[in-house]
Amino acid sequence: MPSIWAIKPTPKKKRKINTSKICIIKIIRPAGQRKQSEMDKELDKSGQRKLECADVSRCFQLLERIIDGNNIPDSKEIIQEKLAKCQPCFEHFHLEKAIKEAIHTKCTKFCMSEDMKSDIRKKIQEIKLDAR
């Protein structure tokens, strides 16, 4: 019989969050009640960001290059600094990123039917045989 002290209390189960429900709530929320993201609110309160960017062209171009995955040295630090200090850069970065992600994840990827694929394979096979 094991000692009572050897029995560990069963850990409380973490409550699972049903993300599908959250999405539904978000979609049906009436337009008038829509709120800015929590991140937006938090950072706006601090009032530390400049409301105008001193060099919009250079900053936006740099942010877009980073979002598009081009190899920019110290990109993490650049983003942290720009987003913390400049409101236009903050807004541009998040909007561009959201659009890019929406295109990547939501646009339908049209796939070829198996019939089409087999037609093409046949044609290629014919060309291969002719080449021999």
Partner: peptide, 26 residues
Amino acid sequence: VDYQGTTDLRVDSVKDMLGDEISNAL
């Protein structure tokens, strides 16, 4: 490139859009 200030399109609006709406725009 003439980089202008931000548009008034919201991040939340983009995130709530359906695939068809984004596809049609594209």
